[in-house]
């Protein structure tokens, strides 16, 4: 079953295109990473999926319910955490969760039990009776996740759940998300690739309001990532830049860039690069510290797909993405 389905979903803000013909399918039970640079259309998509915003055209459904009308039946089945969740500072955490539980129709013993459960999941038990106004950012984010879970949602929509957190806060929130695997479908927007690699099993990459790929992380790596040579020198940045510029002009090199003592080279012809690159490195005269042909990371895929060159071949990618989407669903 499909938990989230978007068909030709488009949103314009006057002349600004927020989202352009988005087609997206998220299988039931997936922990889906919705990846894209800032301003790509992630929050717009989530606001459309929650019914808080209306599409210019197209349609979407969540948990089997049409969301374009923003109907209450759909909202009873979802949990939503905004990028910067807002609460009533005069309430305690427990009062807020009780209030939200009542909005979902919970009463009496069921409500009290569910409030205790989500407080435990979010590790907020000791702070439950403190005013939210005094909570730290991490605690507020965890309270946001707790409130989004109170109705045991079929689909949980999280908008950049870790972007404003310190490393410890991020770790705590990601642990909560990992804990949800198998219990609910999680749709998580983010621009932090490490978070996606850690908790998501499927990703969709959006750029400039368009989906450029959707598949499992492994499938994306196999399909899109170009092997990358990582070379570290003990040398001045200027020397490394000279080498990078020289390599960039070679026909077998897709791109070469030097930063922080490290040179990253993407090859067009891998076999040729394996033979030709070592002599060039030695001839540079710089002290070599490290030489590696690495497996592609999600970051490499992301950079590749959101670069201008990737956009020009968007049509090819889109057709390939549907193929991989099927493969990802089969994996589920």
């Amino acid at each position: 079953m499909t938990a989230i389905l978007c068909e030709d979903l488009t949103k314009h803000y006057g002349t600004v295109v927020g989202l352009q013909s988005l087609d997206l399918s998220v299988p039931d039970g997936a922990v889906f990473g919705f990846l894209g640079p800032n301003g790509a259309g992630k929050t717009t998509t989530i606001k459309l999926l929650t019914g808080l915003s209306r599409p210019t055209s197209g349609r979407a459904s969540v948990a089997g319910y049409d969301v374009t009308a923003g109907n209450a039946e759909m909202r009873a089945r979802i949990g939503y955490l905004a990028e910067e969740p807002a609460f009533y500072g005069w309430m305690t955490g427990e009062e807020f969760l009780t209030f939200v539980g009542r909005l979902f129709g919970l009463r009496g013993g069921d409500l009290a039990r569910r409030v205790r459960e989500v407080l435990e999941v979010a590790d907020l038990g000791p702070a439950a009776r403190r005013r939210i106004g005094g909570y730290s950012r991490g605690m507020r984010q965890r309270l946001g996740i707790a409130h989004a879970l109170i109705n045991q949602p079929s689909v949980l929509l999280l908008d950049e759940p870790c972007s404003a957190l310190d490393p410890m806060g991020r770790k705590e929130v990601l642990e909560v998300i990992e804990h949800l695997r198998g219990q609910t479908t999680v749709f998580m927007s983010t621009h932090i690739l490490a978070d996606v690699e850690r908790v998501c099993d499927t990703v969709g990459i959006i750029d400039h309001g368009k989906i450029v790929a959707q598949a499992s992380i492994e499938a994306l790596r196999e399909r899109y990532a170009v092997p990358v040579f990582v070379i570290e020198f003990e040398a001045a940045p200027e020397q490394m830049s000279v080498l990078a510029n020289h390599l960039q002009r070679q026909p077998w090199v897709a791109s070469a860039e030097a930063s922080e003592g490290r040179l990253r080279l993407y090859a067009r012809d891998l076999a040729y690069a394996r033979q030709t690159l070592p002599p060039l490195v030695i001839a540079s005269g710089m002290t070599l510290l490290h030489y590696e042909l690495t497996a592609p990371s999600l970051e490499d895929v992301f950079v590749h797909l959101t670069s201008a060159s990737a956009l020009t071949s968007a049509s090819a990618l889109t057709s390939a993405s549907s193929e991989m989407s099927d493969a990802a669903e089969a994996r589920q």
Binding site: G51, L52, E73, R75, I78, A86, F87, Y88, L103
Partner: peptide, 14 residues
Amino acid sequence: ERGTVVTVLSKPVS
């Protein structure tokens, strides 16, 4: 202004 309206209206509330 504070965003609490989004918190409430993303629930089954008219």
